[in-house]
Structures are given as C-alpha cells and as structure tokens.
Design a protein around this nucleic acid. Structure first.
Length: 863
RNA sequence: GCCGCGAUGGUGGAACUGGUAUACACGCAGGUCUCAAAAACCUGUGAGGGCAACCUCAUGUCGGUUCAAAUCCGACUCGCGGCACCA
C-alpha cells in the first residue's frame, strides 16, 4: 500500500495542471453560464504570503472548482496591487527601488499560491504597476476629469508626518492615527486633486439595496455616507448692544443653521458657529464689534484652529466657547439668540452653524449649562413630564408631544417636524436640505510610488482663465452627450475656477511612465519627489503649446484597485481599457471575497468609479460586486495578530512542506465558520492531515471489496453529496468537511464500496483537497483526465426509509424513542410509545394528552 | 454614547422552519501493535449523583411566549469590530 506523502505528488501535479492547462478560462456560451469569482487581490509584500491569505483564496478556489465541475464558465483570475505606500516604505527600508523589488515579491507570491493548488487562470495576471495597466488607470483619470468629477484645491488635508503625504479622511482612525502607519496625524495645506464622490452620495446609498453583502458592511457604508435630512434655517443677525444708536436695529448679516430637529425650534436659545465659520472672520474685521469681544474671539479662534485633532480629542468633551456680541433673531418668536463660537461645531458638516436647543440636545444642554444660557422644554416626555430640565438625563426625548410651541402645541414630534418645515419654507425662512457625512475624496499623494497623474499646468492659460472645458476638444468631444442622468452634468463655479490652466495630456501619449529614480524619498517640503526631476516636469501645454508643467503628485494605491476587476475580463487589450464585449461576457463580479477591513475604503471607491463609468457609458451596470463574503482573520496561536516582532508568525511554506497544501486548505476551511476570526492551532491542523490520510488509505483498502454498497452507506453518500453541494454555495465549508468526515467514518466501518461510488466521494472532496483527490483519481484509479474537469455528482433521489426512529417526550423531556412507520397514525404511535418502559413509568396511571408531529416527535403532557 | 456582530463541554465548533443539545474535530484517559517511542487503530469522554437500571442539572444572566426554546420576544451582563461633539 502506498503511503500518503503529499510532498511526493503535489509539485508533480502543479506541473501537470500547468501543462494540461486545466484551469484555463472557458468561454461562456448559451449552454455554459458564466460566473466571475474574485478575491481582493493582494499587495505583494516582501514577507510573502501570510497564513491568512490562503483562507480567502481557498474559499474562492473551492467555489471556482465547484462551478467548473458544474459546467459553468468560470473566470477566476489573480493580480497584484503593488503601487502605494507599503511598497515604497519597504523599498526605502531595503534601500532598493520599488520598481526592482516588486517583481521579486510578485514571483514569490505566485510560487506560493501555486503551491497551495489555487486554480487561477494565470494568463490573465497583471500588476497595477505594469505600464500596460496603469496606462488605462491614467486614461480613466482623464475620463473622470472630463466628466467634471475632479477638482484641484489648496486644501487643509490630513497629513502624516511620517509618511510625508496627504490623506483622505477615511484613512484617519478615530483617535487621529494614520490607519496605515499608526502615527499621529497633523493637518497641512497642500494643493490636491479631489474626487467629487459626494455627488454620488445618494446613488452610492441607493445601490446598496440590491447587493447580497453582509449586513454589517452594508450598515458601515450607510453610516459612512451618513445621509441626514433636515432643514437650513436662516436667521437675521443684529447687534443690539452696539454703542452706536443707529446700528442697534440694523441687520448686519444672516446665518444659516442646519438642523434635523426643526420641531424644537421654539426652544432655541442660542446659535453656535464653528471657529472656521465665515461670519466669525467677518466679525473680527467689523469695526462695530466691541473690542472686548473681538479680542476674546480672536484668542479663542487662534487657539482652536491651531489645535490638532489629537489635541481636541485629548481635551475630551468639555465645552469651551466665546460670545461674539451679536444675536440671531428667531423668526418664529422674535427671540434674540446670542451667537457663540465653539469648537464642538464642525465646519465641514451641515453649514458649520448650529442652532442651540438645550432642552432637546445633549451637547446644546452641556454648552448652555457651561455658560449659563436659558433652557426651555418644548417637547413633553414619554411620561408626560413637563418639569424644568435640569439634568442631562431629561434631554433629547425622541417621542412625545409639543408644548410651548404655539401652533405646534399638542402635535406628535414627527407631525410637528413636517408642519414646521412646511411653515418655514412657506415663509422663506428655511429650506429643506440633506447633509452627508461623506466628504470628497483626496486623490493626490506627494509620493513616488504611484501612477503619475496625467495632467499639465500652463500658467499662461491659467492667467487667461482657460480650462479644458473652454477648448475645442471639449466642444467636439462626446463627454457632454455621454453624460447620463446624474448631477455632475454641470460644473459648479468652484470646480471651474480651480481648473484654469489644467489640461489632460494627450491620451495617445499614454502611459505617462513613472521615471526610474535613484532618490525617491519623500521631500521635506511636502512636495512629491517627482518635482525634483526637472526635465520630467517640464513639458508643453497641450492647449497652447507654450511651456507647461507636469503634475508631480501621484495617485493613491486605491486607484489601481478601483477597476482591476474590470480589466481581468480583457487583460491584454492595448486599444482600450476593456472591450464592451468582454463586459457583457463577464461582468459584474458574482462572488467577491476578502476581509471586512475594506468595508468603507476600497469597496466604496470601487462602487463610485463604476457608477461614474456607467455615466460615461463605459459599462452598463452600476454595481461591481453582486455578492460579497468576508473572510475572518487568522490570528496566531496566542490569539494575537501575527507579527514579526511578536515572533508568532506561521509561514504557509513550512506548513505545506510538512503536511502538504491540502492539509492547510482543509484545516483553514474546517476550523470555524468562514467569516469568523480564528486562532492558529497546530494540533487541529494535524486533524486535517489525519482525515486526508484516512481517505488515502481507504481508497486502497475499501474499494470494490464489499459485494455491493449497502443501502445505508449509499444513503449516507447521497446525503453527503447533497450536504456538501449546499454548504459550498452557502460558504459553510466547515460543515461540508465535517459531513465528509462523518462519511468516511461510516465507510471505514463498512465492508467497502465500489470504485464508482468512491469516485463520487472523491469528486466532492476535490475542491477542498485538489491534490489528494487528483492523485488518487489518476494514480490509484488510473484515470487519464483531471478530476477537476469531471462532472459534479448529483445526489440521487434517496428512497425514504419506511422505518424511522422518533423521540418520545413526557412534558417536554425526552424519555425514550420509538421505531415507527413514516405514515403511521398517532393512535398507533402512542400505543407503541407506551410499550417503552421508561415512557410507561412516567405516564402510566396518570391522565395525559398527546401532541404528535408526524414523523418528528411525540409528546405526552401529563397533568 | 451610537451602529453591527457574538457568547453552547477542557478547546475549535454543530444543530434544518422551534422538535432527541453538544455532530465533526482537537485534547485527555485507557487499550492494541512495538524492545521502546512515534505513527496508526480501538474504546471512553458535558457536569453532578448512583453498584446498576437510571435520575437531576446544563447553550452568558433574569423574565416571558409555547406541549416543546441554543433557536422567538423583553430587559440586562460581558467580549469583538466600526463610528464618534454629524446639529
């Protein structure tokens, strides 16, 4: 008997599959339905594959193998997300150029993936750093630019001093730490390319409804977009305390506040502005502002604006603020609302101004208490409480009826809300509006290792206020007529002005290659290292032919991952990013598998690009990933994250060497439900090896030995086929494997079964343990073609057993079982049950009634 | 604080639509084989009581619905992830 030695046959089979081209993508056709199964492609780090990677890849591999055997045309590609900060930082550390390092890392990743028996179609492989790929990333940037989705702005951005680059808000963790490097973030004003993702906020929200994604991820996206319906109320500003008599009744200005609770507006007692608010600047300039106020305001504003987010968080939630000397007039009751400045109001949400209703908002309450402002109750609490509000507990009643609110009195909050909004709009004091948490997406990086942004700046054209939309090219381009039904069809003024003098480079000249630089470390000035390469920067203006300057910022690593799934359908096309035919054939992705850490970054950005591409008529679907499944993390044996410094890293190479790839695959799939976090366990890994070893041995000892497959074992086999098939589609690999283990336990105890039946079992094992199944299939059973191209077995319709065993309960407690005929009537079942001694003991001599669920259970209720 | 997820033996976990809780695996104990060990295989294994047949208790806590609850409902505790002064 041959021993189970995976290291003897796994490398051989990798070659065989390569040679036979086993995993080539079959073209879809009328009777061959497509399915597109995709992993979130990895960043190929120098450390090689982590044992967490195979968990997700094995899952998609099982799906792909299953669908292939089911006769589907399966697209299952792999590529590399190799641009971006981690690669650049690693290269700096290693004192190498990332351009030299990345190919080595890729080769290593690919070798490891092959060793795991992953059935990717390698003919479609590419890296985001290939000029033949990023040529189209740059081309897409230009299309988005022409659609008006990009603007350039000198913005105060989150800035990481360690990484020396600007960041998007999404990349900053709650405590003011950069999510990538873990360093505190500061702010810096830098010119940046910014994507108008906010224009798509509503569509990004609505699109979520049709997706088969984990609920948690959908909620995170919803919350990130953070749509809030409310009303902007405009208040007149007066200065009754002015020293000059004439000015006491003069209307100085107007301030607009956003609120979602206009129903409480009768309870407003003050207005608070963010320190960055325009009116604050105006107040400081205005000579009428009494000196005693302006000095204090200036002091406060200077102090808060210079504070970093980290400092603000450290200070906690204690309210600070300063009075401006001005008042807003509440239109509803002509009440004067003192205008304050405080940093708890954020300049970038709503209008940067809040109307304070301390009776019904906790922050407003705290602020009012801090500075002794009036507190009015305008909503009756649940229990009819109308007492004065003196404690924070009493604040923010979400249910109740209105009081102290004139024409709203007695109404339910929700009704009052609509009524007051109607009223405010009718009086032209307010306008219904929507605010979002989502901000525009900062797309510039002042770093070397990214796609160069294909834009040129011309000072001369800028001086003449010429932008691309003034050119003839725009007039004859079809961007205008390509625009579909969305709100970006007109450029707003801010965007227009920011783009004077900026022109996309000639599309025919793409790719704009990243030059090979000896020195590419981030500059101290915050500018991109490319800006130091004088002859690269210098170019001609695509519009006037005069002297132009190239953009030296590069794209963030999200750029490549925002559309790679589209390229896999047509990876070698050098005429266009993809053909329409390839889109129809393969898109969108049917199964997308990756970690939950991408819940708002990658997944949101990709969805945004696809929606923009839809508007450009470049694709005809608007959601890229129909199904999303999350893979749980793999922690170290000590339940901590694996890390070099902790010395608890498990290297998949070593596991493969010692136990074989199939053991690793079985182990990772068996350990726990797929989306759940697991801690590595070497002893459980050995359990996986034992299972495969037993299958291997059984295939040599218990095949064709019994006369016929017993009815019982046959039933079990069919049940197993059925269970495994269902479990694969439900991503329940752990129970699929458990059921196969159960089956071989029965098989081992049996006389054996025919080769035909064993093959059936091998086929359902094949997606999980592709090497072992293939080796037995070919070497032991002498098959010529791959098991992975054989048809998936159908579970034969099982003959329902006539005799079944059901539990018998007395008062809900199981006291025995009874063997009955499936169709047997209650009366006779009860009679049989009473023959059972135990049951008898509990029932005899007492009065009872029975509940019989046919074929399931019998319960005596003894009183 | 808000949103989401979770809690079942010594351990990872299983349980269809409410219907025999603990499948499968690990670990442990005993055994077979061996000079010995490893491997492999066999038996046992939720807790407590009992010589035994059996009995009682047990799915984070407390209550409820039901003939019947790990599963449904209400309140709570703890853990994990995300967000956080969002008006």
């Amino acid at each position: 008997m041959k021993k189970y030695q995976p290291s003897q046959f796994e490398p051989k089979l990798i070659e065989v599959w390569d040679k036979e081209n086993t995993y080539a993508t079959a073209e879809p056709s009328k009777n061959k339905q497509k399915t597109y199964i995709l992993d979130m492609f990895p960043y190929p780090s120098g450390a090689g594959l982590h044992v967490g990677h195979p968990r997700g890849y094995t899952a998609t591999d099982i799906l792909s193998r299953y669908y292939r055997m089911k006769g589907y045309s399966v697209l299952h590609p792999m590529g590399w997300d190799a641009f971006g900060l981690p690669a650049e930082n690693a290269a700096i550390k290693a004192k190498k150029n990332p351009m030299d390092m990345v190919p080595d890392n890729i080769a290593n990743f690919k070798r490891q993936m092959k060793a795991l028996g992953l059935s990717f179609d390698w003919s479609r492989e590419f890296s985001t750093t290939d000029p033949s790929y990023y040529k189209w990333t740059q081309w897409l940037f230009i299309q988005f630019y022409k659609l008006g989705l990009l603007y350039k702005k000198n913005t105060e951005v989150y800035y990481c001093e360690k990484c020396k680059t600007g960041l998007a808000e999404e990349e900053v963790l709650a405590n003011g730490i950069h999510e990538r490097c873990g360093c505190p973030i500061t702010k810096k004003e830098l010119p940046q390319w910014i994507f108008k993702i906010t224009s798509y906020a509503d569509r990004l929200l609505e699109g979520l409804d049709d997706l088969d994604w984990p609920k948690g991820i959908l909620d995170m996206q919803k919350n990130w977009i953070g749509r809030k319906e409310g009303i902007n109320i405009t208040y007149k500003v007066v200065c009754p305390e002015s020293k000059i008599q004439d000015l006491r009744s003069k209307i100085f200005d107007e301030i607009t506040c956003f609120t979602t609770r206009p129903d409480t507006n009768f309870g407003a007692t003050f207005v608070v502005l963010a320190p960055e608010h325009e009116f604050v600047k105006k107040v400081l300039k205005d000579e009428n502002t009494p000196r005693e106020y302006s000095t204090k305001i200036k002091e406060y504003v200077d102090r808060t604006v210079s504070k970093t987010d980290l400092e603000r968080i450290a200070e906690g939630k204690k309210k600070t603020g300063v009075f401006t000397g001005y008042y807003a007039v509440n239109n509803l009751n002509n009440k004067l609302l003192p205008i304050w400045v405080s940093d708890f109001v954020l300049s970038n949400f709503g209008t940067g101004a809040v109307v304070g209703v301390p009776g019904h908002d906790l922050r407003d309450f705290e602020f009012a208490r801090e500075f002794g402002l009036e507190i009015v109750r305008v909503v009756v609490g649940k229990d009819g409480d109308t007492s004065a509000i003196t404690e924070s507990k009493q604040v923010q009643e979400e249910v109740g009826r209105m009081i102290n609110s004139e024409f709203l009195n007695g109404l339910d909050i929700q009704v009052a809300k609509q009524k007051i909004m109607d009223y405010l709009e009718e009086k032209k004091w307010g306008q219904r509006t929507v605010s979002y948490h989502l901000r525009d997406w900062i797309f510039s990086r002042q770093r070397y290792w990214g796609e160069p942004i294909p834009m040129v700046y011309c000072q001369k054209c800028a001086d003449k206020k010429i932008s691309w939309w003034d050119t003839e090219e725009f007039q004859i381009s079809n961007v205008k007529c390509q625009m579909r039904d969305h709100s970006v069809s007109k450029l707003d003024k801010e965007v227009q002005e920011s783009l004077y003098g900026w022109f996309p480079i000639d599309e025919k000249s793409l790719p704009l290659e990243l030059p090979y630089l000896k020195s590419y470390e981030p500059s101290q000035t915050g500018e991109s290292p490319l800006s130091a390469v004088k002859d690269w920067v210098k170019t001609t203006c695509p519009h006037c032919g005069g002297e132009g300057k190239r953009e030296t910022d590069t794209m963030p690593n999200w750029a490549g991952s925002c559309w790679y799934f589209l390229r896999f359908a047509d990876p070698h096309n050098d005429k266009e990013a993809w053909s329409q035919e390839s889109m129809k054939k393969w898109q969108p992705v049917d199964w997308y598998v990756g970690g939950a850490e991408h819940a708002v970054l990658h997944l949101l950005y990709s969805r945004f690009w696809v929606k923009a591409l839809y508007d450009l008529k470049l694709v005809d679907f608007s959601e890229p990933f129909l199904r999303l499944r999350n893979v749980g993390m793999v922690l170290a044996e000590d339940h901590r994250k694996m890390s070099k410094s902790l010395g608890n890293v498990i290297n998949p190479d070593e596991v493969v060497k010692e136990y074989g790839a199939d053991t690793l695959r079985i182990y990772e799939m068996f350990m726990a439900p797929f989306s759940q976090e697991i801690s590595w366990s070497t002893s459980t890994l050995q359990g996986g090896y034992r299972f495969l070893n037993r299958v291997w041995n059984l295939c040599q000892t218990k095949v064709g030995t019994g006369r016929d497959l017993s009815l019982q074992l046959n039933q079990k086999l069919n049940k197993t086929v059925h269970k495994v098939t269902n479990d694969i589609l439900n991503i329940k690999f752990n129970t699929a494997i458990a059921s196969m283990m159960e089956f071989i336990n029965d098989w081992e105890k049996s006389e054996g079964m025919s080769q035909e039946e064993v093959k059936k079992f091998l086929k359902i094992l094949a997606p999980f343990a592709p090497f072992t199944a293939e080796e037995i299939w070919r070497d032991i059973f002498g098959e010529k073609s791959s098991i992975h191209l054989s048809p998936w077995p159908e579970a034969e319709k099982m003959v329902e057993e006539e005799e079944i065993t059901i539990p018998v309960q007395v008062n809900g407690k199981v006291r025995g079982t009874v063997v009955i005929n499936r169709e047997e009537q209650e009366e006779s079942v009860v009679k049989k049950a009473l023959e059972d001694n135990k049951v008898k003991k509990f029932v005899e001599g007492k009065s009872y009634k029975t509940i019989y669920v046919k074929g399931k259970i019998l319960n005596f209720i003894v009183t």
